[in-house]
Amino acid sequence: MAGRLPDPGFFVGYLNSVPRPLAIFLVVVAAALVGGMAGLAFALGTNANDPGDGTFARKLGKQEMTGVLLENPYPILRVRPDARNPEARTIMLTVPGKRSVKRRGRKLFGQLVDVKGFMFQRGDIDMLQVQGKNSLKAVEAGEDEPPPTFTPAPSEPLGRWRLIGEICDSKCHLGAMRPGDGLAHKACANLCISSGAPPIFVTQEEGAVAGETFLLMADQDGGPLPGNFGDYVAVLIQLEGEVERLDDLLVFKVDIDKAEVL
């Protein structure tokens, strides 16, 4: 349908010529579109929440620890102090991906084990991602030596607390991704927790409980939280329960059904 030029001011898409006043207007619109999008990108892009300092600390290199592997409430290692790790600590364990270390450690729970892997760290809490060949194995006694033992310190009760905070999946929150909290992250958190990542309670206020912000969650008997509590993940809730200390890790033992969404 090519032909004569259209009347001034009339645009016909398949004809190359565009009336000059219209062309000038369209140049302005195009510039406004590109400029506007650039401005909005900068505004929205700079307008980020602080996702915190959760880090996958690969730079620290592979960590090696020896300790007692416990299953409840979630796989944790009660670390035996030695030259590599002078202080007693309790550390949560994970494996690569959204999976639990339970499968790898199922025959080793309750035993003294050597563990190797890389750390996730955020504030006063950390987590070891068990990875690599021979990264989780029972400690073997040397020849003519008695089997090595280690008795972790008993848990220290800290009383009953009412806390306000958010249930997060420990892996994402400690640095697998940033941000690893909030409603936009809820589905991922649910998937991680249901796949084996230990749920942690992050208090609204920093250092709210004995100077600590993060607590490993457990049910009232010290086992894993029951069933599907996804409704309470990634939202601000109020929860009561006993808090106890395992070395440097706080555990929050709760009846999750009594959680109150604020």
Binding site: A38, A41, F42, G45, A48, P51, G52, R178
Partner: peptide, 16 residues
Amino acid sequence: LYIKIAPSFQDVTKPT
């Protein structure tokens, strides 16, 4: 702009 420039101007502890 969103992924390359804006992060440099964010007020965050660690980047997204």
